[in-house]
Amino acid sequence: MKNISLGLVILPLLIISCTTDAIDTADTIDSKISGKKSEKGARLMQTLSPENPENVYDYVGKLHNDLLETYLAGNYQYSTIAQISEQVEAIVAMNSDVALLNLETSVPVNLEEIQAIVNNPEAKLDEAIANSSMTSAAKISLSSFMNAALLWKNEEYGAIYQSIISYESAVMTNTEFSGEDKRIILTTSSIARYSLYYDKKPPYDEDWGTSVGNRVGGVSGAIDNSLTAISRSLITGIMISNLVTD
Rank of each mutant, 00 (worst) to 15 (best):
S132Q: 09
I81M: 06
I84T: 12
I117P: 05
A137F: 13
E89K: 08
V98P: 02
A73F: 06
S136D: 15
E156T: 08
Q77V: 02
T70K: 11
I84L: 09
L100T: 09
Q115N: 14
V107N: 01
Y76K: 02
V109A: 01
I140A: 12
A99Y: 04
N65W: 03
Q115Y: 04
N65P: 00
A137G: 10
S79M: 08
S106V: 07
A130S: 15
D58M: 05
E127T: 13
L101A: 11
A123G: 03
I117L: 03
A99R: 08
S106R: 03
A130V: 13
I91T: 06
S136L: 14
T70P: 00
V107Y: 00
D97G: 00
S79K: 11
N95F: 02
V92I: 15
Y59N: 06
F145V: 13
V92H: 08
P108K: 04
L150N: 10
S136P: 00
G74P: 08
S132N: 06
I91W: 05
M134H: 05
N65M: 07
G61P: 07
K139D: 11
L150A: 06
E112K: 11
Y78F: 15
N65I: 04
A123V: 10
L68K: 06
S106M: 06
E156M: 05
V60P: 04
K139H: 10
V56H: 10
P50K: 02
S79W: 00
V118F: 04
E89A: 12
K62Q: 15
V88W: 02
K153P: 00
N120D: 15
L100Y: 05
A90D: 15
P108S: 06
G74N: 08
E112D: 15
S133F: 12
P108A: 06
A93L: 13
E127W: 08
A99S: 09
M94H: 04
A149W: 05
E51C: 08
L111T: 15
S96M: 03
N131D: 15
Q77D: 15
K62Y: 14
L67V: 07
Q83K: 07
E127Q: 15
M146Q: 12
Y157V: 10
E51P: 00
T70I: 13
P108E: 09
K153V: 12
N110K: 02
S144F: 04
L72P: 01
Q83S: 12
Q77K: 09
G74Y: 09
A82G: 00
E112G: 13
E54C: 05
Q87S: 07
Y157D: 11
Y57P: 01
M146F: 10
Y71Q: 13
Q87T: 14
S96H: 03
N120Q: 10
T70H: 05
S143D: 13
Q77R: 05
